[in-house]
Write a protein that binds this DNA or RNA. Sequence first.
DNA 1: TTGCGTAATCGTATATTTGCGATAAACAAA
DNA 2: TTTGTTTATCGCAAATATACGATTACGCAA
Lengths: 111, 111
Amino acid sequence: MQRSLFKVEYSEEEESMAAFAKAISHPVRIKILKLLASQECCFTGELTELIPMAQSTISQHLKALLDAGLIQGEINPPKVRYCIKSENWLKACHIFSDFFKPDQPLCDCPI
Amino acid sequence: MQRSLFKVEYSEEEESMAAFAKAISHPVRIKILKLLASQECCFTGELTELIPMAQSTISQHLKALLDAGLIQGEINPPKVRYCIKSENWLKACHIFSDFFKPDQPLCDCPI
DNA sequence: TTGCGTAATCGTATATTTGCGATAAACAAA
DNA sequence: TTTGTTTATCGCAAATATACGATTACGCAA
């Protein structure tokens, strides 16, 4: 990729919002988060049974969610129990509700 | 990419949430949306002046936002005036606020 | 018609993402 | 120690995304 000479500057908020968005930009990761956020709460690799994908692929998506800080995992050999990382979940809640404000005055261009 | 034999099924809501998320998964697109959503409202290619990126790159990002349905453009030769597409903006508002509920009962695993 | 300004598209190069199977790692139980 | 269970990581291939310059397209004004 032919990289720009000077880097575009982004605010911390823009960067982290983009990172959260990227984490949930794949439907299977949304599905996983929904499962973890549901009342059953702390789930594990039963995900592999619920989602028809290779175990390695599920693990890869879990890693993406981990890296984004949206989930956390407790190693409980030989299993790993995952759940929502509430700290960053709340951060994401705030960032997105700040951005997507339904009562925001929007353009009324008659396009 | 070695595709799965059987396709994973996603709900319409999961699909469109992922699509919206992908659209805002790049900080420059968040920046653009912020500019368009700000009171100045209907913006155009002044974006090219505000954001130090090649014109073609900006146009590419605008197309991504267009394809996601988050913005719309009015051709006003030789310019194009963009603004938020409120219909889908509201849809995104609802989808994200439904997903990121701060008062949701989350796991209290002591990880 | 010819040029000008604006914006989209093309072509290209590189980076990242996505998916799989195979393998490795970590621990518990036999 | 060996075996089994669970999960992460590796290596690969293909698809997408990102960025640029160059070119094209489209009206408007000379």
